[in-house]
């Protein structure tokens, strides 16, 4: 199985035996650091600028969200959302300060489920994906299919709800926020591809001859070798847990267990409800007075997004470290 990758390289270096070439390349690397890798300066500048423009387009809405969060509510109602608001205000953040207990609690819940969930998730997915990536595993195609099939056919909302609440009894527990997101067929398949590509049997064979158990091989050889892949899955999983609000909507009634994004979505949904049911507010103005306004919602977006977005470089470290691993592989 690992041979298919080598085949593709043969076309590049058909004139010389592969091994020799590799060794030669490695020598050069030691002498000269990586400038073989560099783009032509002009090309580099062009692409830097192009990607820069796209990045600005990506970040801009976020800046815009920050601006709205600093716009006075009155100004939003009168003029809508503006790039440069007619009237600035920090009311939104003052509102958040007033509900800081709930916010801090939600932060705690989010961080807890993200950390615990990601760890469990990465372990379970790696085990599963590694096993189905090994040619020795007789039933690998069946288990690949078993995972893949769930990507297309799901049980639907109500049956899943029954399993989680009535069968597993997880309603209003922290596990209801963690377990339903632990596995994901998409990640399994990606991880399988990573393992197939970056962990060749030849490396493992020598370890096996030395008498290492498969578990030891997994943790001591496979895991470090596939760090970029694992970092990817960990990142996806982290993002998944951090951004998740739907499981909380379904399984959590207790305000103490509501994660941050769910809190944000609640505000969004409540604002929507309020707009559609103006007559409810007519009877009892105070009900909707205590609901946050648009600007507060944006302020929530800011504080819910910023921490996770700036934690991305942490994962990047592992992508970069993959570079060096590639070098020491042989």
């Amino acid at each position: 199985m690992p041979n298919d990758l080598n085949q593709t390289q043969v076309s590049v270096v058909a004139s010389q035996p592969l091994d020799q070439l590799k060794r030669g390349g490695a020598k050069i690397k030691r002498k000269k650091t990586r400038d073989y890798h560099e783009l032509h300066p002009v090309v580099n500048t062009i692409f830097s600028v192009l990607l820069g423009i796209f990045t600005i387009m990506c970040v801009f809405p976020f800046i815009y969200v920050i601006i709205i969060s600093l716009t006075s509510e009155e100004s939003i109602v009168r003029n809508g959302f503006q790039i440069i608001p007619a009237e600035w205000s920090t009311d939104a953040y003052r509102y958040l300060w007033n509900v800081k207990d709930q916010l801090l609690g939600s932060y705690g819940v989010t961080i807890l489920i993200t950390v615990v969930g990601t760890v469990i998730s990465v372990l379970m997915i790696s085990f599963y994906a590694y096993a189905i990536s090994r040619p020795q595993f007789k039933y690998r195609r069946f288990f690949t299919f078993l995972a893949f099939f769930t990507m297309l056919f799901s049980g639907g909302l109500v049956p899943t709800y029954i399993v989680v609440t009535q069968f597993l009894g997880l309603k209003n527990t922290i596990w209801a926020l963690i377990l339903p997101l632990v596995m994901n067929a998409f990640y399994i398949i990606i991880m399988r591809t990573f393992f197939m590509k970056s962990v060749s049997e030849s490396i493992l064979e020598s370890a096996r001859i030395d008498g290492a158990s498969e578990w030891r091989i997994f943790f001591q050889i496979v895991f470090p070798l596939s760090l970029p892949g694992i970092a990817t899955i960990a990142l996806f999983s982290t993002l998944g847990y951090w951004n998740d609000w739907f499981t909380a909507l379904l399984y959590i009634d207790d305000p103490k267990l509501v994660p941050l994004q769910a809190l944000l979505m609640k505000i969004e949904a409540n604002l929507e409800f309020m707009k559609q049911n103006v007559d409810v507010g007519l009877m009892q103005q105070s009900l909707f007075d205590t609901l946050p306004q648009d600007s507060a919602k944006m302020a929530m977006v800011v504080i819910a997004t910023l921490p996770i977005a700036v934690s991305y470089p942490f994962f990047q470290k592992y992508f970069i470290s993959g570079l060096t691993i590639g070098g020491v592989k042989e």
Binding site: Q16, K22, G24, G25, F194, P228, I320, L323, G326, G327
Partner: peptide, 10 residues
């Protein structure tokens, strides 16, 4: 990132 650098060198 996971691609073996030696391929590029070659």
């Amino acid at each position: 990132v996971g691609i073996d650098r030696t391929y590029y060198e070659a």
